[in-house]
């Protein structure tokens, strides 16, 4: 039997009112894959990512994490809702997310942000969690900022804390939602550097991004979404040098 893929999404659909944002997207990530998801704004790439951990509830489609399906049902109004919210919470704790706007908890110090998930969701003993948090902060180069509040850090530093916070959960899959889009240009490099390191460690990552260089050099697979559908996908070396579709060609020329 083949090994279960780390993450599998099947035929996902999502509408906001009458507006169909995702029209049947499927995606599969093997352990260690780095999938870059590209697309113009409004192509549904962020919505797709947010449907995976149910920050948005998809209208239909299935999400499997290491072979386990997130069970959904219809409520009495005919809307799709999770069958068991505890299962969803458990799945979310294995699917760490890094947001465009960092979304650190502002009333907690850097260290407390990193400890929160392990201690209060996974119930890891505090001493053990502290040791790991210290190592993660060292890894993202912020050991000296452990007692700072997020508001007292630069955007790049905040995003690196957010990555450490995500790593602290020992996630099976990491979801990055435009992690560098809110950063000043000179701060983008430090965050991408950390993400490259994670890719080298064979972390499974889905990265929604506008950073073409990152997609081309780091991703194991690139997916281009257009109007809520997968328009083109494959190895980045092939996609970037010789795109099949007119849409992706046009997108690339706009980005460069």
């Amino acid at each position: 039997m083949a090994e279960e893929s780390a993450l599998k999404v099947q035929d996902l659909h999502k509408s906001f009112g009458a507006h169909k944002v995702i029209r049947g997207v499927s995606m599969e990530a093997q352990k260690g894959d780095v999938i870059a998801i590209l697309g113009a704004s409004g192509s549904g790439k962020s919505t797709f990512l947010r449907c995976i951990n149910l920050l948005e509830t998809p209208n239909s489609g299935d999400v499997y994490l290491a072979g386990e399906k997130i069970r959904m049902k219809k409520n009495r109004h005919g809307e799709t809702v999770p069958e068991d919210i505890r299962q969803v919470e458990r799945m979310r704790s294995r699917l760490a997310m890094v947001f465009q706007g960092f979304n650190l908890w502002t009333h907690m110090t850097v260290l407390e942000n990193v400890l929160e998930g392990p201690v209060h969701v996974q119930k890891t003993p505090k001493a053990e969690a502290r040791e790991k948090a210290a190592a993660l902060l060292a890894k993202v180069g912020l050991s000296d900022r452990a007692d700072y509040y997020p508001a007292h850090l630069s955007g790049g530093q905040q995003q690196r804390v957010a990555i450490a916070r995500a790593l602290a959960m020992d996630p099976d899959v990491m979801l990055f939602d435009e992690p560098t889009s809110a950063l000043d240009p000179e701060l983008v490099g430090e965050v991408l550097g950390v993400m490259r390191d994670l890719a080298d460690e064979a972390r499974t990552m889905l990265v929604v991004t506008h950073e073409m260089g990152f997609a081309r050099d780091v991703s194991s697979k690139t997916v281009f979404l257009h109007q809520g559908e997968v328009c083109e996908e494959g190895a980045p070396s092939k996609l970037f040098s010789n795109p099949d579709t007119e849409q992706f060609r046009a997108f690339l020329s706009r980005m460069n």
Binding site: E89, R92, S93, M97
Partner: peptide
């Protein structure tokens, strides 16, 4: 965003 981060953490 802070509430979403908590949701996403589980």
């Amino acid at each position: 965003g802070e509430v979403e981060a908590a949701v996403a953490t589980g």
